[in-house]
Amino acid sequence: MYKVFLSLLKRDLRLAFRHKSEILNPLFFFVIVVTLFPLGISPDKQILAEIGPGIIWVAALLASMLSLESLFRSDFDDGTLELMLLSEYPLSIMVLAKIVVHWLITGFPIIIFSPLLGTVMFLNDDAIITLMITLLLGTPILSLIGAIGMALVVALKRGGMLLSLLVLPLYIPVLIFSSNAVGSSMAGLSISGQLYFLAAFMVFCLTLAPIATSAALRISLE
């Protein structure tokens, strides 16, 4: 079982590195969206520091959601997904491997780039570290919940808009706790409560989301 997980992980990572745009596009999207806000609102240091945490998190949320297509789309189109359903190994393990890859190619680069954007939005050092921690805990949740939504719409021709309708309401708790944690650490307040919540929610999703995703895949492909 572990072997299946690893070999699928390797295969999907290799595929992702052969299409570099799959890794770079969400990242560029993330950076561009954040850049739009100072242009649209004001370059004022105080305003940006106040709205920065929320904006960076909303941008991360959208970047992760828009890249969900890469999770199942190509495997669905060439029939690989159908073979995975037929295989003797548990589908949820294979789904988990795909979700991990999705996080590695979208969530992880965002975490690496976030200090840069935090600096641009005039967050202080504490807040930038908190931003990275919340992204580390939060972006896996985005990939896990997003996988359920993607599995439901994978067989539809125009699933993109629908996917955002399904998934964005479920992302709200992550947004609330993460951006609040970053804001609080700007103000020098304690943030352990928010981080505990994010960690708990991540473990919760890690346990249940692969099962829900594989159930949804079975329905989409029947």
Binding site: L152, V153, L156, L162, L165, L166, P169
Partner: peptide
Amino acid sequence: YLGYMALESAI
């Protein structure tokens, strides 16, 4: 609710 109804009408 809207997401539910949208999914229902899309499939």
